[in-house]
């Protein structure tokens, strides 16, 4: 763990097992300012001026001028011109291709904690498990409670613990795909970490992000956390059976969401009571049929021309 802020990627776990780092193994330990991991030479920075205990210090009075003669600097410019998340997007593309080849329809479920994602998943699985093979990837910072709830329905589930991490990324999903028993023409649910901010920017290779908002939250959440509603392709308004007891304004919530994302489809459901669930099930089934048809067409072309 980083001693400066407590962050760390070393705590990511899949089903309790440490995840192989996506960093090269010959690289130094970047998050721990310990001497053991310090393989780079810093002799060009006089220790009297650049104190290694103050990582935030940027001192331009030292460095190359200390060891290089004026005018002899090797400084040059290197063009990068790449998206910061290019690596994640590359892993996401690989995941998307892997899923497409197998006709797997993958959904990334995102919401704040407590919106009812896992309950919704359990109910959805109960309604669909006789029609499609289903698998689930569960993302939480800690515990495998959610995966256990999913496994109780009889479908395979893999728990990713992100440790201190606040979202799933495409590299984690790529590793999970290798470990899950995924069948041809099946359905994959990815339940992201409960967080309405960070997961919005990370493509996992899914077909759609589905954002879940529950009526026990504020109707202005789409305005407060716009990125997620902007990134999602479908919004589920959950716990609608509780509306008689609340002051939640459904029309206002939908208007706010569509202000952020014009044309965003919204379904009003209650996972516990079952209202609206059939519309959601039909939407998933249409997606599954589409994924299977595309994979089937690709295979037919491969066998003809491959």
């Amino acid at each position: 763990m980083c001693t400066t802020c407590g962050c760390g990627v070393g705590q990511t776990r899949i089903n309790g097992k440490t995840v192989q780092s996506q960093q090269r193994t010959d690289a130094s330990l970047r998050f721990r300012p310990l001497q053991s991991g310090h393989v780079h030479s810093h002799e060009h920075v006089p220790s009297s001026v650049a104190n290694p205990q103050t990582p935030g210090t940027i001192d331009f009075g030292v460095g190359i001028a200390g060891t290089h003669a004026p005018g002899m600097s090797q400084t040059r410019m290197v063009k990068i011109e790449r998206d910061i998340l290019a690596k994640n997007n590359q892993y996401a593309d690989e995941n998307r291709q892997y899923l497409a080849e197998r006709g797997i329809f993958a959904l990334n479920l995102v919401s704040s904690p407590g919106s009812g994602k896992t309950t919704l998943l359990v109910k959805t699985i109960e309604m669909l498990r006789d029609r499609f093979p289903i698998a689930v990837i569960e993302g939480d910072q800690q515990t495998d409670h959610d995966a256990a709830r999913i496994r109780a329905t009889g479908v395979p589930a893999l728990q990713i613990n992100t440790g201190k991490g606040c979202h799933l990324d495409a590299h984690m999903i790529g590793q999970a795909l290798q470990q899950l028993p995924l069948q041809q023409n099946s359905l994959l649910f990815i339940e992201n970490v409960g967080n309405l901010v960070c997961p919005s920017g990370f493509d996992l290779g899914e077909a759609h992000k589905v954002v879940i908002l529950s009526v026990t939250e504020g109707e202005d959440k789409p305005l407060k956390y716009p990125d997620m509603f902007h990134a999602a392709d479908l919004m589920l308004l959950n716990k609608c059976d509780l509306l008689p007891y609340l002051t939640f304004d459904v029309n206002q919530a939908i208007a706010y969401a569509q202000r952020i994302h014009p044309g965003l489809p919204v379904m009003q459901i209650s996972a516990t009571k079952g209202s609206g669930m059939q519309e959601w099930i039909d939407w998933i089934m249409a997606g599954c049929h589409r994924a299977a048809a595309i994979s089937h067409t690709a295979q037919a072309l491969d066998s003809r021309f491959g």
Binding site: C2, T4, S28, F31, H40, T57, I58, G63
Partner: peptide, 26 residues
């Protein structure tokens, strides 16, 4: 419009580059 807090990014950049070739990079 990107979901990035610049001050937070500066802080974490300094943290993750501490033991790298980008140490103390501006």
């Amino acid at each position: 419009l990107a979901c990035v807090e610049q001050e937070s990014l500066r802080f974490f950049f300094a943290v993750v580059t501490e033991d790298s070739i980008a140490r103390q990079a501006k």
